[in-house]
Simulated assay, not measured.
Amino acid sequence: MTTAAATASHAWFEDLQALLIGGLFVAVSVLLLREAGLLTGGTAGLAFLGHYLSGQPFGAVFFALNLPCYLFAWRAMGPVFTVKTFAAVSLLSVYSEWLPRFIRLDGLDPAFAAVLAGLLAGTGLLILVRHRASLGGIGVLALYLQDKRGWRAGQLQMAADGLILCGALLALDGRRVLLSVLGAAAMNLVIAVNHRPGRYTAI
């Protein structure tokens, strides 16, 4: 695929469906992790830690944590990316609190939940990235470095996730932390394999 084809603009309705569907996939991932008592990496991982330690809703914590990132995103990635990222973050914050009204899970195996959540999150993030959006926070920096320096976004995200998941020991037992690492690895594998420099770019 040529660079011109990879960076071709999408119509507004294509971007809208990407925000709605990509955000929904990630929200289902959040639901699975929360029901299994797990977490993930990135800003969502920090939001899970805040949720578990404080008892505040995940959606509210996630939205608040992303507020500082928009100034950097505006300067580094441009206004279009920033506006779409704000929309994606807002949708995920709302979705994550609404979904339990529509989906109830009984007998969920934590290991299966971790892997499926990782795969869904990775797929949702790919949809967002290919329409010039992200879920803010660490993802913005990872995408910026990939597009400007050629570094793999998935590998950068995985390194940051490792640090965040180490902090998960403050809220979870060792087994759940290991399962959370498994889920984060599944998510980053999807991103690393499917989002490479020269195929699709975020800016």
Rank of each mutant, 00 (worst) to 15 (best):
M1K: 13
T2C: 09
T2F: 07
A6R: 15
A6Q: 08
A8G: 12
A8H: 15
S9Y: 06
S9A: 07
S9E: 15
S9W: 11
S9Q: 12
H10W: 10
W12L: 14
E14L: 13
Q17G: 08
L19R: 05
L20H: 10
G22C: 07
G23T: 05
F25R: 06
F25M: 15
V28N: 04
S29H: 04
L32R: 10
L33P: 01
R34E: 07
E35T: 08
E35G: 02
G37T: 00
G37R: 00
G37Y: 01
L38E: 00
L38H: 01
L39P: 03
T40A: 09
G45K: 03
A47F: 04
L49T: 02
L49K: 03
L49P: 00
L49M: 12
G50C: 06
H51Q: 14
H51C: 09
H51V: 03
L53I: 03
L53W: 03
L53D: 01
L53N: 00
S54V: 02
P57M: 02
F58P: 03
A60P: 04
A64P: 02
P68I: 02
C69K: 00
Y70W: 15
F72P: 07
A73D: 13
A73E: 13
W74A: 14
W74I: 05
M77V: 09
M77F: 12
M77K: 11
P79R: 14
P79Y: 13
V83D: 01
K84E: 08
K84Q: 11
F86A: 13
A87I: 08
L91D: 05
L92N: 04
S93V: 00
Y95S: 05
E97M: 14
L99V: 12
P100S: 15
P100M: 06
P100A: 11
R101M: 14
F102V: 10
F102P: 00
R104W: 10
R104P: 05
D106C: 00
D109Y: 07
D109G: 10
P110W: 01
P110I: 04
A111W: 09
A114F: 05
A114K: 04
A114G: 12
V115K: 05
L116P: 06
G118M: 15
L120V: 01
T123Y: 06
L126M: 07
I127T: 09
V129C: 09
H131V: 12
A133P: 03
A133K: 04
L135Y: 07
G137H: 03
V140S: 15
A142W: 12
Y144L: 11
Y144R: 15
L145S: 08
D147W: 04
K148G: 11
G150E: 06
G154I: 03
Q155Y: 15
A160D: 05
G162M: 05
L163F: 14
I164G: 01
G167V: 04
A168T: 00
L169R: 04
L170K: 02
L170A: 11
A171S: 04
A171P: 00
A171N: 00
L172P: 00
L172F: 01
D173H: 02
R175S: 13
R175Y: 08
R176I: 01
R176F: 02
V177P: 05
L178M: 12
L178P: 03
L178K: 00
L182Q: 07
G183D: 10
A185N: 14
A186C: 14
A186D: 08
N188Q: 12
L189M: 07
I191H: 14
I191T: 07
R196F: 07
R196D: 12
P197W: 11
P197V: 09
R199V: 14
R199T: 13
Y200I: 06
T201A: 13
I203T: 11
